[in-house]
Design a protein around this nucleic acid. Structure first.
Lengths: 252, 252
DNA sequence: TAAGCTGTGTACGATACCGCACAGACCGTA
DNA sequence: TACGGTCTGTGCGGTATCGTACACAGCTTA
């Protein structure tokens, strides 16, 4: 498939920020693929064969406990990359990467991208920036799991998800959301019912539509704003990092 | 045992694995300092001026919510380094680093260590390895917060803490533990009472003694074993990475 | 059009944890 | 030795979430 970074369906912000000469080297090896809802990019403990750059797909990183209970650790959309542990020197992560919203993304062989990373040029700088944001998201998830109600977390999750989409409708069952948040399906049914009654969302069998963003934000915990800000910051840093090494919008 | 040679008051495993010539460059700038119980290395949003390598001290990374509620995201002992976000290009993290067990550690000016990191030699490789382990710990924390009881988490926390110590006694109030786990102090009192009745621990005003490790392990959730394994793996990878670039003990 | 599966709604007791209140024990200091 | 502050123990009602069970509704396929 032809790669022109102008089209929306094949745009990944991290890749787009890679310097031109580096990108030229990567380009022939980038494979634009379908990422289907529910498909698993890698399981806990897998040796990574590829690295993925989602474009329209959203991928959920989950930790699966011994008894099968799951929890979403972080979400990855077109601002990021999957398989970062490869850069870290370890070849495996303890998490599962599962496609949460079907769409497209780029795939590249692990060896090739690692080689490029180790040249210590823009791909490395960008990846590290991204990992920083990812760590922030993970921290928030840990704290949010401890302190906030299911309803608050549902609002956060919905907001973070539609922020990564072009439409305001997502294809998602309550069962799936429950497994991401690590709660019972019934808990989601109740919370979603409240949001529906409040007029903030609507839904039918496997489809959820967000009607009132500000409404959701008002019910969400602080975690949404913090993560969103971190990613907004990340994106603007990507852009400026093409020309300079200094971060763009951190507190000083 | 997680940390074997921690009897030495000025030993940090990450630093020890840095290649000789690189270490020589760092050495003049390493400042061995006291890290006192309760002192804060950096607050959320601070611009980092230093990077720290604990030797006998243990530092807790906490996320502080707007209402002041706190949660430990990860702990850092002499296997790691504090201020990694510096390497990531962002200068700030959204967490607070607070000394949880008083002791010693090295401090080095941010600029110097960043310079060394950017040479892309062993300090970089080691730091990335460490960040990988840190991410694992954070993932587990998020999942554990969701799924496990206070008692299980207390066991996990105690085990991870004494693994980083030479003695089996830690100086720590129940109030402090509660703020780390993000629960009420009374919840810790009850859980600790159970562990005491079971004969696994003993305590008095601000001192906790672990009497029966296997006992604690049997009550702990799986999270302890997973994190411990990850750090064991990290340490052996440090050692082997002095001579090769390949990870030592990952699943394949 | 009917059957069948999957997704959603609801109910109910059980339970883990919370918030609050206060008593008592320990320990350093005066 | 007495005092005072800090740490720990305990009780009680309130609440969020869980576990389980089951009814029903919406899509898909035959």
């Amino acid at each position: 498939m032809l790669i022109t970074s102008s089209q929306v369906t094949n745009h990944n912000h991290l890749l787009a920020a890679v310097q031109a000469d580096e990108f030229e080297r990567l380009k022939p090896h980038l494979e634009l693929i379908q990422m289907r809802l529910g498909s698993v990019l890698y399981e806990s403990g897998d040796r990574l064969q590829h690295v993925w750059f989602p474009t329209t797909a959203i991928v959920s990183l989950q930790y699966i406990m011994e008894d099968g209970a799951s929890t979403e650790i972080a979400g990855v959309g077109n601002e990021g990359v999957l398989g970062v542990s490869l850069f870290m020197g370890g070849a495996a992560t303890p998490s599962r990467a599962i496609v949460q919203t079907g769409g497209c993304g780029y795939r590249i062989k692990a060896g090739l991208v690692l080689q490029e990373f180790n040249r210590a040029e823009s791909l490395q700088r960008l990846s590290l920036l991204y990992i920083q944001a990812l760590i922030t998201q993970m921290s928030l998830t840990a704290a949010c799991n401890r302190h906030h109600s299911i309803e608050q977390q549902l609002c956060r999750w919905l907001l973070l998800t539609i922020d990564r989409l072009t439409s305001n409708e997502l294809i998602m069952t309550q069962e799936l959301i429950a497994s991401m948040l690590g709660v019972r399906r019934e808990g989601i049914t109740e919370a979603a019912g409240n949001l529906k009654n409040a007029g903030f969302i609507n839904y039918r069998r496997g489809h959820i539509t967000v009607l009132d963003r500000p409404g959701l934000e008002s019910l969400s915990c602080e975690c949404y704003q913090v993560v969103k800000k971190e990613y907004d910051c990340l994106l603007s840093t990507y852009a400026s990092s093409k020309h300079s090494h200094s971060p763009a919008c951190r507190k000083q």
